[in-house]
Design a protein around this nucleic acid. Structure first.
Length: 421
RNA sequence: GUGGCCGUAGCUCAGUUUGGUUAGAGCGCCGGGAUGUGGCCCCGGAGGUCGCGGGUUCGAACCCCGUCGGUCACCCCA
């Protein structure tokens, strides 16, 4: 840090988003807002930190995120808080506390914090766009939510991505399935990779999600959740799949898909980009959480949502060469080599007229100021020199298109810049 | 938390294998060429404790040790 000879830098795993890259973020958020607001979702802001129990209860003590990745801290009042590691639990907490009318459909854009080792596409602070829909148990809501995520990706221009879909059952059939899966896994314990042998007891579902060949082979003939869903869950899952077919959202049923948060029930899904070589190819995911509202102290109320990783999504866009964004350009740049009074006044007048205008400072040379004008991307440069000042005029010179320089009375500068469009 | 690779100008890097006078390039930045006109071109300039600390040596950007940082991968996830 300053004083000890080193330059201050952002904490490991965090990153700055500066202009012009930030305009792409803005554009993505705007695209997302447009998509989901058209479907009746409204923006919600909730605190960036919560009582740590909000996350422990819903996400689960046994999950990696809660177990070893949360940024937890005690505030000066002795409260145990945590920076949000994901977006759903805080939104559901807000629902439980405020109890807005059902169905409650909300969207968010938020940073999320997880203490992990940073690597390509993985950060300690990343950002997510997401929606939550609380109230209906209707499978058609699942279809709507999944289709929204799919639509966001397509609107951004992505085409090389896959939607995987599974059902995690409910409180009726999940315990039954887990027990059966455990019996199967115990018999295969020796064949599993070391890291998953102990998970047979702590989190048997995750063993199915192991990417190692050994585990894959050992669990190839494991019981499948789809075969053990209760009648209600099976019917729900059938309608979700039929609905996705009907609305034209392609998906792959994947009975190994197990997501990292304990609160998921029934429909779970994940989008992966085929354009990202890195292991971090998940660009979005979500699912139903029919027990979460109750876990956080509210009345039993079902819900479903998804989160999309902004950084990952933009990486995928880069990989596919889509979603380019041109930063907004200035209408005019004012160059003043006659003392600066006119630059000060004309720039203000242009801005008040609703035009985008900037100027040079520090009374630098005309060449220098014109270079700044050129770099600014401005359409026209407004030139003010001693001659113009003496005559009460300014000179307008187009920078982006062929055209002659013209001189107009200073009082006409707004109209002249507009005409130069 | 574990492992591989890498730390030289604002950025991207060369130089490290065979230690040897004032550490280089491109881009960017500043100024000039046009005594009032950008982009292209030409000329010049500023800018570096070679991550930090210690060691070996007559001599270290270069070799050795440590440390910090970055990056990639495992795990897990967005």
């Amino acid at each position: 840090m300053a004083g000890d000879g080193t330059v201050a830098r952002a904490p490991s795993g965090t990153h700055d988003v500066l202009w012009p890259e930030s305009t792409r973020w803005e554009a993505l958020v705007a695209l997302f807002a447009d998509q989901v607001e058209r479907a009746g979702y409204g923006l919600a802001h909730t605190p960036i930190f919560e009582d740590v129990r909000v996350f422990r209860r819903g996400i689960g003590e046994g999950s990696d995120v809660v177990g070893k990745e949360m940024y937890e801290f005690e505030d000066r009042g002795g409260r145990m808080l945590a920076l949000r590691p994901e977006g759903t639990a805080p939104m559901v907490r807000a629902f439980v506390q405020r109890r807005p009318p059902l169905p409650w459909k909300a969207w968010y854009v938020t940073p999320a914090f997880r203490y992990e080792r940073p690597q390509a596409g993985r950060y300690r602070q990343h950002h997510q766009l997401g929606v939550e829909a609380i109230g209906p148990t209707d499978a058609d809501l699942d279809v709507e939510v999944v289709a929204l995520a799919d639509g966001v990706f397509r609107s951004a221009g992505l085409s090389d991505f896959t939607l995987k879909l599974n059902s995690m059952g409910d409180e009726v059939c999940r315990p039954v399935f887990i027990a059966e899966l455990q019996r199967f896994l115990v018999g295969r314990r020796e064949a599993l990779c070391a890291e998953h042998q102990h998970r047979i007891e702590t989190n048997p579902l995750r063993v199915l999600d192991c990417k190692r060949e050994a585990c894959r082979a050992a669990t190839a003939d494991a019981p499948r959740f789809v075969d053990h869903l209760c009648d209600a869950c099976a019917a729900h899952f059938d309608r979700v799949r039929a609905g996705l077919d009907a609305v034209g959202v392609p998906f792959q049923a994947d009975n190994r898909l197990v997501r990292g948060f304990d609160y998921y029930t029934r429909t779970t899904f994940e989008f992966t980009s085929g354009a990202l070589e890195a292991a971090q190819n998940g660009i979005g995911g979500g699912g139903r959480y029919d027990g979460l509202v109750e876990m956080l102290g509210g009345p039993a109320t079902p819900g479903i949502g998804f989160g999309i990783g902004i950084e990952r999504l933009l990486l995928a866009c880069d990989a596919e060469g889509v979603f380019p964004v041109d930063p907004p350009t200035l209408d005019a740049f004012v160059v003043d080599v006659a003392g600066g009074d006119v630059a000060r006044d004309v720039t203000a007048v242009l801005r008040q007229a609703g035009l985008r205008a900037d100027r040079a400072f520090d009374s630098r040379s005309m060449k220098s100021q014109l270079k700044s004008a050129d770099r600014s991307g401005a359409r026209v440069v407004v030139i003010v020199g001693p001659d113009e000042v003496a005559a009460g005029t300014v000179s307008l010179r187009p920078l982006r298109s062929p055209g002659d320089q013209q001189t107009v009375p200073v009082a006409d500068v707004v109209g002249a810049v507009r005409d130069a469009r």
